[in-house]
Simulated scan of single mutants.
Amino acid sequence: MRFFILIFFLLLGLIVGSFLNVCIYRIPINESIVKPSSKCPKCKKPLKPWDNIPLLSYLVLGGKCRYCREPISLKYPLVEFITGVLFALAFLKFDLSLSLVLGIFLISVLVVLTFIDLSYLIIPNKIIYPSLVIALALVAINFFTVPFLPLVGAKNPLFSICGFLGGGGFLFLVAILGEKIFKQEVMGGGDIKLAALLGIFLGWYVWLALFLGFLFGSIVGVTLMLLKQKGRKDFVPFGPFLALGGILTLFFGPQIYNLYASLWMIG
């Protein structure tokens, strides 16, 4: 039975991923995510329902539009695949629970923000502000019910508040100091708000998410400079690395921390 539920959440993630693709494409250009129906971004032809089946349509069409035969961006099936896998992993992590619902919500937001930031170098307020409002409302409810936040570590709404203030506050400090030292913007306001959002769901473990985000961001940034793809003053979006750190912390936070602590003690 558990296997079939796992498959259900995998398929659900693929379907939700298809909708997230619409959000990723339309929100930055201020188009409605409800209507009109999906169309080819190249020839603008409306797509048939059977051309919108997650992953399958891409494979059947050979990665090309049925009408103009222009290549379909690999980003579309990638978003669907990633969302499907993460939804399945969320079920394995949280089982059928309220934590599963909240985890799926956070995953969906992070997937959208990651691919928008990669494409447009922005984290839209249209997404981050409503997400923060919902998350803060959940924290308020959490004070009057059996605690269900944060999703990692001990359940205590005070930990979510500390994560919110700590995550957002730390990146705000980094932004202020970085601008004074380097005489240019080093951290966007969207990154600060994203860290605050992660703090609500991750509690104290938001520090691990930040550490992983800076670690991955540094590795990629240095690699790009060595390959001469980026200069020292070129901007590299931090949102995707922060989201990756948040996802890894959501699923493996305590294990990563314990591993790090054990290595430190051995050293």
Rank of each mutant, 00 (worst) to 15 (best):
Val139Phe: 03
Lys180Ser: 04
Asn156Leu: 12
Val220Met: 10
Lys35Gly: 15
Ile123Ala: 14
Pro150Met: 00
Ser99Ile: 00
Asn156Asp: 15
Val236Asp: 08
Gly267Lys: 04
Asn258Ser: 15
Gly190Gln: 08
Pro130Ser: 15
Ile53Glu: 09
Pro237Trp: 12
Ile53Leu: 13
Phe214Asp: 06
Gly153Lys: 05
Ala209Asp: 13
Gly169Ala: 11
Ile72Thr: 03
Leu198Gly: 03
Leu197Trp: 13
Phe241Pro: 02
Tyr260Ser: 12
Phe3Ala: 11
Pro240Gln: 08
Lys180Asn: 05
Pro237Arg: 11
Gly153Asp: 09
Phe3Met: 13
Asp191Ile: 14
Phe238Ala: 08
Lys45Ser: 12
Gly239Gln: 08
Asp95Ile: 00
Leu224Trp: 07
Phe159Asp: 10
Leu14Gly: 01
Asn21Ile: 08
Ile141Cys: 11
Gly103Tyr: 04
Gly13Pro: 04
Val186Ile: 10
Asn142Asp: 15
Leu198Ser: 11
Leu165Thr: 02
Leu118Thr: 04
Ala243Lys: 06
Leu121Ala: 11
Glu70His: 05
Gly62Val: 00
Gly153Trp: 04
Gly213Tyr: 10
Leu47Pro: 11
Ser160Phe: 04
Ile127Arg: 03
Leu106Val: 06
Asn258Asp: 15
Lys35Asp: 11
Trp264Arg: 11
Ala261Lys: 10
Phe87Cys: 02
Val186Ala: 11
Pro237Gln: 12
Glu31Gly: 08
Asp234Asn: 09
Leu138Ala: 05
Ser37Gln: 14
Lys75Arg: 15
Phe8Ser: 09
Ile123Phe: 09
Tyr205Trp: 06
Ser131Ile: 10
Phe238Ser: 07
Ser119Tyr: 00
Pro46Thr: 12
Leu212Arg: 09
Ile134Gln: 03
Gln184Glu: 15
Ile128Glu: 13
Tyr76Asn: 10
Pro124His: 09
Ile27Pro: 03
Ile176Gly: 00
Thr249Ala: 10
Lys193Met: 14
Ile107Trp: 00
Tyr25Lys: 03
Pro36Gln: 05
Leu47Gln: 11
Ile33Leu: 04
Cys23Lys: 01
Gly199Pro: 15
Ser218Met: 12
Ser97Val: 09
Pro147Tyr: 01
Leu59Tyr: 04
Val22Arg: 08
Ile24Arg: 02
Leu212Thr: 12
Lys228Ser: 13
Ala261Ser: 14
Phe8Leu: 12
Leu55Phe: 09
Phe19Tyr: 10
Val139Lys: 10
Ile192Tyr: 13
Ser160Met: 05
Pro130Trp: 12
Leu10Phe: 14
Lys233Leu: 06
Val236Lys: 10
Lys44Tyr: 08
Leu177His: 02
Arg26Tyr: 05
Leu96Gly: 01
Lys230Met: 15
Ile266His: 04
Gly213Arg: 08
Cys43Leu: 01
Tyr58Ser: 07
Leu263Gln: 05
Ala135Arg: 06
Leu149Thr: 03
Ile27Asn: 05
Ile161His: 02
Val186Thr: 13
Gln255Leu: 10
Leu10Pro: 12
Lys183Tyr: 02
Leu227Thr: 11
Gly167Ala: 13
Pro150Leu: 01
Asp51Thr: 03
